[in-house]
Design a protein around this nucleic acid. Structure first.
Lengths: 235, 235
DNA sequence: CGCGGCTTTGATGTTCATCAAGTAAAGTGG
DNA sequence: CCACTTTACTTGATGAACATCAAAGCCGCG
């Protein structure tokens, strides 16, 4: 599905937005109105970059729909993927409150809609609404904790364990299904778990040969969760 | 230096505390007084555990002096060190605002003093003081970003690069000196960079043989920063 | 002074990266 | 729409990097 550049900015009602409960649950009606009027909703097609590391931070962004990856490009030019997240889990790069520029890049793995609210407005709301501030701290903390936790889970495993972990993550956390379409290339899995793409492919092939998964291109089926969980645990 | 258990709780004036500027710069005098009256200052000897993962969270903690490590114990029983920090950089595990129990353990690498403020009081201050909240968000975000950044720096390097990076971190960030005492065992370095302790030792020996460092037990001297930086960059 | 933990070094084998070569798939331009 | 180009994927072979195991020395502590 291609997205026309003219549809980049559109409006809907914030009052009924399902995400209002996540971040803006403690705002009064008037403030919700204020947010609603000044915000911009932007659509990004699969593969598009939402922001680059080094870009000036102007907006507080959260994901309304789609799937994104947060990543950093090393000086050698390869990507380190920090996290892959969906709406309701992802809010924003936490550096927005203490830095001028983004540390990490963000791009869309699926067609995505991002809601952008001026960071100045968020600051203002924090200043005058304690409940909003307290809730926001909690949401931001959760986002960071998820990233840290993911990194710990990955770094303690070997190649097979990492891949099993990632497949289970996609299956259980993102798609809630035993069958799903991988939203990423083999290379991107490699960039997420810090292994070579050749070995990611090899391991997926071995899983297929051993009946741990059925796969066809990016379609993955997990016939027996327990087997994969065993590999994830002992790897 | 041994610390008597009776000195665990002591008081000093918060008004003049150098850390007031970091976290409590936007409190009014009366609130600083309130914090000062209810807080507890606890001393921990080198090696003591400040809290275990799984402990109930009651306090907002920050480090007044000393050096601590934040870590997680895996189901196999080995430690993954998340970060090693000093005062002025470290504030607290960010899970305090959205979880009941600590996710990670914290222990003292050097004799340390931790200032403990009831989390309820911090919440109250957030609710009624927007500037305090905004500043706190910024400090918490910085803490998380440092952890994420460290993990990215480590995971993109090989063994020698990781060790060079860690030595430079100790030298430049923690001790601001070309000569310093390692605050951690070889095994703890291994737990920080996710490598085996035997290979950490081997690499340090090689660095010594090659004149990259001079070392005697835990004393490390870096005769030529550039050499180590070269290894850190290309590794 | 003897015990246990940390450190050190060597030998061995496993794991993983790299290189290369080929195939499939997907976009691109005429 | 087809030929072309590019990118993603796949597999095997090779070697480098790293873990593991083992034995010995050192040090601090009770």
């Amino acid at each position: 599905m291609k997205i026309d550049i003219n549809t980049r900015k559109k409006k809907c009602s914030c009052m009924s937005c399902e995400l209002r409960n996540l971040v803006f649950s403690f705002l009064e009606e008037a403030d919700v109105q204020l947010v609603c009027e000044t915000r911009e909703e932007k659509s990004f097609a699969k593969g598009e970059i939402i922001h680059h590391e080094g870009d000036m931070i102007r907006d507080f962004k959260y994901l309304k729909s789609g799937l994104v990856k947060l990543y950093k490009t090393t000086s050698e030019g390869d990507e380190q993927i920090i996290t892959i997240t969906r709406p309701f889990e992802f809010v924003s790069n936490t550096s927005i409150f203490h830095e001028e520029k983004y540390r990490y890049s963000l791009s869309a793995l699926e067609d995505s809609i991002v809601c952008c609210i001026r960071i100045d407005l968020i600051r203002e709301l924090i200043l005058r609404n304690g409940k909003f501030a307290l809730n926001l701290i909690s949401v931001l903390a959760r986002t960071s904790e998820n990233i840290i936790s993911l990194s710990l889970e990955i770094r303690k495993r070997n190649l097979a364990g990492r891949i099993a972990y990632v497949l289970l993550y996609f299956s259980k956390e993102l798609y809630h299904s035993r069958i799903f379409e991988l939203p990423v290339s083999r290379k991107e899995i490699a960039d997420l778990i810090s292994m070579s793409s050749a070995n990611v492919i090899r391991t997926l092939s071995e899983f297929r040969r051993d009946g741990i998964i059925n796969s066809n291109g990016r379609t993955i089926e997990i016939p027996d969760m327990n087997k994969l969980e065993m590999i994830s645990m002992r790897g």
